[in-house]
Simulated scan of single mutants.
Amino acid sequence: MLKNQEERLEYLIDELCLESSACKHLEEMRSEPEKLLRSLMNIRTSKPISEKFLKIQDRYLKCAAEEKGIVTLSEIPTIQEFYNSNIEFADRISLWKGDITRLHVDAIVNAANSQMLGCFIPCHKCIDNAIHSAAGIQLRDACHQYMTEKRKEDPTYEEPTGSAVITEGFNLPSKYVIHTVGPIVSWHLTEDLKQDLMHCYESCLKVALENNIKSIAFCCISTGEFHFPSDEAAIIAIKSVQSFLEKDPDKIERIIFNVFKDQDLEIYKGLLCK
């Protein structure tokens, strides 16, 4: 087995280039090998690969996760502890700003698209791309297997908006990934779109219950590429979580609202820290 990250990175790039004719279009990234590897993983469709590759990839990604810094649940205070919030269930809810792929929780939520295969655009900044890149190529394989089963009955099947599907987390610190398809706001926000987003949160929490998940981190579903207004999305997210906790107060021990932008942090703070 290769001994260091540099050797592993070189091996993984070489192997993926051998199986991909698209590699020649990414040659300008040779001076940025980490970016090149991620790009090659992003464009790769689900197909067989050697056990050796998977072992080296897994070792590389786990070391990369450790270098990036894994954040445990004990390092994330509740809003009651950190913000002295007195809203209902403040002892169960956390607000954390950062990279969701660093979180060592039972499950993180991925804002997926209806194809359910991850983002194929090299190094795209969407959370779908980030999660698949950190998890490894097995995550796309798992999603492909799920979609293949669905398309046996309906070859045109696309995952419905508001649904949720669980997979392993593979090389992520989190044990599971819960994929949900959020609503797309094309023109203006409607009540139907608000209901669709609420269903995303409800579906994810239902899947969490069914899989005995005790801690779950939500990204800001639909607020990126799908253009859902951040302030409205936060209101829906918080209401959905509080409504769930009213019905099942003891089933999930911690629910984390994970934000990446300062703007979203301020929105959630304004709503949660009263």
Rank of each mutant, 00 (worst) to 15 (best):
F89M: 01
D91Q: 10
D91P: 07
D91H: 13
R92D: 05
I93S: 06
I93H: 11
S94V: 14
S94P: 13
L95S: 02
W96P: 07
K97V: 03
K97E: 09
D99I: 10
T101S: 15
R102Q: 15
R102T: 09
R102G: 02
L103Q: 07
L103R: 10
H104W: 03
H104N: 15
V105K: 07
V105S: 00
A107E: 01
A107V: 06
A112H: 14
A112T: 04
A112F: 14
N113Y: 13
N113T: 09
N113L: 11
S114Y: 04
S114A: 11
Q115T: 10
G118L: 00
G118E: 01
C119N: 09
I121A: 08
P122D: 11
P122K: 13
P122F: 12
C123F: 12
H124P: 00
K125Q: 12
C126S: 07
D128K: 14
H132T: 06
H132N: 06
H132K: 07
H132P: 00
A134G: 00
A134I: 02
A134T: 01
A134R: 10
A135Q: 06
G136K: 00
G136C: 01
I137D: 02
Q138L: 09
L139E: 09
L139N: 03
D141C: 05
D141P: 01
A142T: 05
C143Q: 14
C143M: 12
Q145E: 15
Q145A: 12
M147W: 08
M147L: 14
M147N: 10
M147Q: 08
T148N: 11
E149T: 14
K150L: 11
K150V: 12
K150N: 12
R151L: 13
R151M: 08
K152N: 12
K152M: 14
K152L: 10
K152T: 02
E153V: 06
D154N: 15
D154K: 09
P155T: 00
P155K: 07
E158Q: 15
E159A: 11
E159Q: 13
P160T: 03
P160G: 10
T161N: 12
T161G: 04
G162C: 02
G162M: 06
S163N: 09
S163Y: 05
V165F: 12
I166P: 00
I166L: 04
T167R: 00
T167L: 11
T167M: 03
G169T: 04
F170W: 15
N171M: 11
L172R: 11
L172V: 12
S174Q: 09
S174D: 04
K175D: 13
Y176P: 13
Y176M: 05
Y176V: 01
V177R: 04
V177E: 06
I178Q: 05
I178D: 10
I178H: 08
H179D: 09
T180C: 08
V181D: 00
V181S: 07
G182A: 02
P183M: 01
I184S: 00
I184K: 06
V185I: 04
S186K: 11
W187L: 00
L193K: 12
K194E: 14
D196S: 14
L197M: 03
M198E: 15
M198D: 14
H199P: 07
H199C: 09
C200T: 05
Y201T: 06
Y201K: 13
E202K: 13
E202F: 09
E202W: 12
S203P: 00
C204T: 13
C204W: 04
C204R: 04
L205T: 01
L205R: 04
L205V: 05
K206C: 09
A208Q: 03
E210A: 02
N212Y: 03
I213C: 07
K214R: 15
